[in-house]
Computed example of a mutant assay.
Amino acid sequence: MQFIVDLRSDTVTKPTPGMLDAMMNAKVGDDVFGEDETVNELEEKSAAMFGMEAGIFCPSGTMTNQIAIKCFTQPLDELIADQTAHIYRYEGGGIAFNSAVSTRLLNGYRGIITAEMIEPEINTDNVHHPHTSLVALENTVNKGGGSCYTLAQIKPIADLCRNKGLKLHLDGARIFNALAHTGDKAVDYGKYFNGISVCLSKGLGAPVGSVFLADKETIKYARRIRKVFGGGMRQAGFLAAAGIYALDHHIDRLKIDHAHAQILSETLSNCSWVSGVLPAETNLILFDTVEPAAIVLEKLAAKGIKAMSTDKRRIRFVLHLDVHPEQIEYTVDVLKSL
């Protein structure tokens, strides 16, 4: 029997029956008027989980990240991030377009940067230089193959930002995968970050949405920016209900995806057509191929396995709640047979 196994992204998941039921029974209102009960509940629930004061529900993680940058910077400022950062590589040049801000890129290890790397790149007060105002971290790091920051790694960066008067933002696209791996507590993140973007539509399996978390004044301004960006939704409670269901039911199961990633990673490490595999800490696997990635992807597709390349000889697998044990067994057999 040939399965269809979609390993392109954890954004391809379909709502579960329980999630659909929650969506169809949501209490809704006009969110722009602040009258959608379910959206309000999601924002309050998310903020409390991460030890933050308030939140704002948006259609995407790109929007929450771009709103955060707009809130924490002024034109002619500069932010510091790793050169693999999603906000830099995969958000359409929004840093420059939306906020008129430049970017100082660092070369971290698998996307992980340190306070020691950041400090020398903070500009002095000099008319020739943009004003450094923001540091942005990503957890987990997409281009790092799901690599994670621990809170112990984040603390020195947060201390540096406070000492230098910088804001610190977290692109938490897969933050719950990071928490599942490190064992850190979500509520402790509020001690370190001025803003946190939490995605609900990746590992947690909601169909749409991310929440930007910050203090009340920042979120008040963020609502104005969301409106300008076209992100003011109306009866969005149908979508927010999926996010609440995901937070209540899909966090604990993330370790299943991590276990599946380990199985595939170990299999790939023993395949002759694979030249290298990055350590699989969470639900992402990046591996290099002897042949061009396009050729390997064609072979996989012929067997019903969908994946994506991230370079000419690099392929990404992403595990998620719609990949089941029998599909993992099938994928292992296919990988061994190529």
Rank of each mutant, 00 (worst) to 15 (best):
M1W: 04
F3P: 00
I4D: 12
V5P: 07
V12G: 11
D21L: 12
N25R: 13
A26D: 09
K27S: 11
K27Q: 11
D36G: 05
E37H: 05
T38P: 02
N40E: 11
N40T: 09
E41A: 15
S46P: 01
S46T: 15
A47W: 03
M49Q: 11
M49I: 15
F50S: 02
G51W: 01
F57I: 07
P59K: 10
G61Y: 06
M63C: 11
M63L: 15
M63Y: 13
N65M: 14
Q74T: 12
L76I: 12
D77S: 15
E78H: 03
I80F: 01
A81Q: 10
Y88A: 11
R89N: 14
G92H: 09
N98W: 04
V101E: 02
S102K: 11
R104V: 07
G111H: 06
I113E: 04
I113N: 03
A115R: 07
P120A: 05
N123V: 00
T124N: 11
D125W: 09
D125Y: 11
V127W: 02
V127L: 09
H128S: 14
H131A: 14
H131P: 03
L134Q: 05
A136M: 15
G146Y: 04
A152Y: 04
K155G: 01
K155C: 02
L160E: 02
C161S: 10
K167A: 13
G172D: 07
I175L: 14
I175T: 11
A178K: 07
T182K: 07
T182P: 08
D188E: 15
Y192V: 05
Y192R: 05
N194R: 09
S197V: 00
K202P: 00
G205V: 02
G205K: 01
V211Q: 00
F212S: 00
R224W: 10
I225M: 01
G230K: 08
G230R: 09
G230I: 09
G230C: 10
G231D: 10
G232K: 08
Q235W: 08
A236S: 12
F238G: 12
F238Y: 15
L239P: 01
I244A: 03
H249W: 06
H250D: 11
H250I: 00
D252M: 01
D252T: 07
R253F: 00
H258P: 00
H260T: 00
L264S: 08
S275M: 00
S275L: 00
V277Y: 05
V277M: 06
A280P: 03
T282K: 01
L286P: 00
L286K: 09
D288N: 14
T289M: 03
V290C: 10
V290F: 02
I295L: 14
V296S: 11
V296I: 15
A301N: 14
A302F: 09
I305H: 06
D311N: 12
K312T: 13
I315M: 05
I315A: 02
L321T: 13
D322P: 05
H324S: 12
E326G: 05
Q327P: 06
I328R: 04
V334L: 06
V334W: 08
L338T: 07
